[in-house]
C-alpha cells in the first residue's frame, strides 16, 4: 500500500522512552486534576453550600443582641462551624464520587486506554479534589474574614492564614481517606455516609479515646489504644479559637509540624488507595 499524505497533518509526540519520565507522570496528574476542578465549578453543590453559608454569615453579621460587643465572637464561632461543616461535605462528596463515577459512567475506559497509569489516575483525582476544596475554602475564609473584619475593625491576617492552611491540610487527609473508601466501597452514597461519620467521629471523640482506653479491661484497652495511635487526629487541625478569640499565633515550627503530620497521613491513605485500585478489575 502506498500511503497518501496525512490529511489531518502529523503530530509530534514525545518518544516512547521519554514517556516514562517524571514529567510525564506530573503532566498526567495535573491534567486529571484540572478536569476535577472544572467539574466542581460546573456543578451546583458548591454554589448552594457557599450561598447558604454566606447568607447565614451575612444575616448573623447584621444583627446585634443586647448591644453586647463580644457577641461578634459567638457569631464568628457559629460561622466557622458552618464553614467547617460545608468544607467537609464538599470535600467528601467530591472525593467519594470521583472513581466510582468514572467506573459507573465508563469514562475510565477511554482515559485508561491512553498512556495513563492507575496510580496517576488516583493521585490526579486526589490532587484535583484537594485543590478544589482549597479553592472553596479560600472563598469561604475570604468572605468570612471580610464580614468579621468589618464588624470588629481588626484584621488578624496571619491568624486567618494559619487556621485556613491547617484546615486545608486536614481536608487533604479527609480527601485521601475518602479516595481510599471510594475504591473499597464502590458506591458513592455509602462512601459519603461512612466518611462523614468517620470524619465527624474523629473530630468529636478522637482526642478522648486514650481516656476511654484507661477505663477498659484488656484486650479492649490495647485495641482502643491502637486505634487512638493509628487514627489521624483531625481535631489537631481545629484551631478556630485562633480566629474567634484572636489568640497569639501558633509557633511556626509547630504549625509546620502539623502540616507534615497531615502530609504523612494523606500519603499513607493515598498509597493504600492506589494499591486497592491497582487490584480492582475494571471491566
Amino acid at each position: 500500500m502506498n500511503p497518501t499524505t496525512n490529511s489531518l497533518g502529523t503530530v509530534r509526540l514525545p518518544e516512547i522512552a521519554a514517556e516514562a519520565d517524571r514529567s510525564g507522570t506530573l503532566n498526567n496528574v495535573f491534567a486529571i486534576a484540572g478536569v476535577v476542578i472544572k467539574e466542581m465549578y460546573r456543578r451546583k453543590d458548591f454554589y448552594v453550600l457557599f450561598v447558604l453559608t454566606a447568607l447565614i454569615t451575612l444575616l448573623m453579621g447584621s444583627v446585634t443582641f443586647f448591644n453586647q460587643e463580644n457577641i461578634v465572637r459567638y457569631l464568628k464561632e457559629i460561622c466557622l462551624f458552618l464553614i467547617w461543616g460545608a468544607s467537609l461535605v464538599i470535600t467528601i462528596t467530591t472525593a467519594a464520587r470521583q472513581i466510582p463515577a468514572e467506573r459507573e459512567q465508563r469514562t475510565l475506559f477511554p482515559l485508561l486506554a491512553k498512556p495513563v497509569t492507575r496510580n496517576q489516575l488516583v493521585i490526579g483525582k486526589f490532587l484535583g479534589c484537594w485543590l478544589a476544596s482549597g479553592i472553596s475554602l479560600l472563598l469561604f475564609y475570604l468572605f468570612f474574614g471580610a464580614v468579621a473584619g468589618a464588624k470588629e475593625h481588626e484584621w488578624p491576617v496571619l491568624n486567618y492564614f494559619q487556621a485556613a492552611v491547617l484546615h486545608w491540610f486536614m481536608l487533604g487527609i479527609v480527601c485521601a481517606l475518602t479516595m481510599l473508601g471510594s475504591v473499597v466501597f464502590d458506591a458513592p452514597s455509602s462512601t459519603n455516609t461512612i466518611m462523614l461519620i468517620v470524619s465527624v467521629g474523629i473530630l468529636l471523640i478522637g482526642r478522648h479515646l486514650n481516656k476511654v482506653a484507661l477505663k477498659l479491661e484488656e484486650p479492649a484497652q490495647t485495641i482502643v489504644y491502637a486505634i487512638y495511635f493509628a487514627l489521624p487526629h483531625l481535631e489537631l487541625f481545629d484551631v478556630r479559637d485562633l480566629i474567634v478569640h484572636n489568640w497569639a499565633l501558633i509557633p511556626w515550627h509547630i504549625w509546620a509540624a502539623g502540616l507534615a503530620y497531615a502530609v504523612v497521613y494523606s500519603a499513607i491513605f493515598l498509597a493504600l488507595a492506589c494499591l486497592a485500585f491497582r487490584r480492582k478489575a475494571i471491566n
Partner: peptide, 17 residues
C-alpha cells in the same frame, strides 16, 4: 502504559465527561 502512546481507541458506546 507507554504501549498506548500511539494508539487511538473508540469504545462501543461513548463515555466522556
Amino acid at each position: 502504559p507507554i504501549a498506548r502512546q500511539r494508539i487511538g481507541y473508540l469504545p462501543e458506546q461513548t463515555y466522556y465527561y
